[in-house]
Design a protein around this nucleic acid. Structure first.
Length: 431
DNA sequence: GGATGCGGCGACCGATCC
DNA sequence: GGATCGGTCGCCGCATCC
């Protein structure tokens, strides 16, 4: 669909969003809105005679141009004078480090949050980025499993329940992040990262037994999340409960695409979801939360509160756009206290970690599912080995069963209606 | 020297704009 | 409907650590 030039254009415009019509070719007089267009023009029309310092051919010139964009323009600009210097326009709020794109800033945020959401299913080592886990798996565990890395598309995690599973530890930000972020937009970012980077947590330690056993009556179910994902949802991007009976049918590729905050989420649904989270009442852990977590994670506060503590039990699930995996992460159970005792190299649990508690979500042990979940038939979008256990205690399902009218007043607070889309989670600290 | 952390960036995709 | 925007994913190279 899109090619390198298109993407380059996007990227360049991202770096220079206000630089439309700023690129003027002094050789032919053509103007271009974007640096990319101008570059392409240079490559296509003036690559040989443009006086570009590169002796490389046009084939590689376009790519090579990027290597020059950090440099100041030549003082005696005969031809390419108006090419602006590519600057690291996007800076990190916490360290003032600068990046070329916002996405780099976002990814960089992990450095400050200390989040390591990606857990190696074989050695329980955690990584802050998925590709790190992938690389780790390829390098360190390739021969052990003889399988494709769990996070590679096409894998069948459940076919390899313990090894071939992409794991995500819902690790909340480190104390550093908590400290730094409080003054800024860290909470939102933290949550956004939860939303985006959370992956199903398969059993990371084969010796731990069936992961389901850990979460009988998981927080997810106790919170009533995903219980009412409209099985007949007409939205193609809606994420549905994963029928526990066939989790292996979910290609990871599908999961990844939607689980990480794809922009495909219906805006309205995300809005309502954000609304719910942001307007959640003050921290008050639900019974489940209190029994499994001692940290006062804002994330959990919101999530736990919204459902478990008198809040709308449909808080999370009310937004059908939220994938089951997302729900899994947002309803993560803080297993820090538990895992702190487990001998696989996880950092000891510290109640002072705040958002840094190790959180994982496991699929429930039982295979009893609501007809809704089992019949959703949308396993392709559910995360690999991970799935939701619809709560045993059901609430009325079907359209209208979870409309906003049932929400507490706070959930419809207009003050929280500023968020407009899921990507804006990140914009909270991008701007 | 290998593993890991990190940034750069290409590929791809869905949403939105025009 | 094409162009554009904004997002995730993952590869690569480099730096650092052990």
């Amino acid at each position: 669909m899109f090619h390198q030039q298109d993407h380059l254009k996007s990227q360049l415009q991202e770096s220079h969003p206000a630089s439309r019509h700023l690129f003027h070719c002094q050789e032919c007089g053509k103007q271009y809105n974007t640096q990319l267009g101008y570059r392409r023009h240079l490559v296509a029309a003036h690559s040989a005679a443009s006086g570009l310092p590169c002796a490389e051919g046009p084939q590689s010139l376009l790519e090579h141009l990027g290597s020059h964009t950090d440099r100041p323009p030549p003082l005696d600009d005969n031809s390419t004078a108006t090419v602006p210097v590519r600057e690291r326009k996007y800076s990190c709020e916490r360290c003032d480090r600068r990046f070329y794109t916002r996405k780099d800033v976002r990814r960089h945020a992990v450095v400050h949050t200390g989040r390591r959401d990606f857990l190696c299913p074989r050695c329980a080592q955690r990584f802050g980025r998925r590709d790190h886990l992938t690389r780790h798996l390829k390098k360190s565990h390739a021969q052990e499993s003889g399988l494709m890395p769990p996070c590679t598309p096409g894998c069948t995690p459940v076919a390899e329940p313990t090894a071939g599973t992409q794991c995500s530890v819902k690790e909340e930000p480190s104390p550093v992040a908590s400290d730094v972020g409080l003054g800024s937009k860290e909470p939102m970012e933290t949550f956004s990262r939860d939303m985006y980077n959370s992956y199903p947590m398969a059993n990371p330690v084969p010796g731990m037994g069936h992961p389901h056993s850990l979460m009988q009556g998981s927080l997810s179910s106790s919170m009533g999340v995903a219980r009412h994902m409209p099985p007949q949802s007409s939205h193609p991007h809606h994420h549905h409960l994963q029928p526990p009976v066939a989790p292996q049918q979910q290609p990871y590729s599908n999961m990844a695409r939607y689980q990480h905050g794809s922009t495909s989420y219906p805006r309205t649904d995300v809005d309502s979801f954000l609304l719910d989270l942001q307007s959640a009442p003050p921290p008050h852990l639900s019974a489940v939360n209190s029994s499994t977590s001692t940290s006062a994670s804002p994330q959990r506060e919101v999530l736990g509160e919204g459902v478990g503590a008198g809040g709308d039990p449909h808080l999370l699930s009310r937004s059908p756009a939220i994938s089951s995996s997302e729900l899994s992460c947002t309803t993560n159970m803080d297993l820090g206290p538990l895992l702190g005792f487990l001998p696989f190299g996880l950092p000891p649990y510290s109640p002072h970690m705040g958002m840094g508690g190790l959180m994982m979500s496991y699929p429930p042990a039982t295979t009893t599912t609501s007809p809704t979940a089992s019949s959703s038939g949308l396993s392709s979008q559910a995360p690999g080995p991970f799935f939701f256990q619809p709560p045993q205690a059901h609430v009325p399902q079907g359209p209208g069963a979870h409309n906003h009218s049932q929400l507490p007043q706070a959930y419809s607070s207009p003050a929280m209606s500023t968020s407009s889309s899921l990507p804006h989670y990140y914009q909270a600290f991008q701007q």
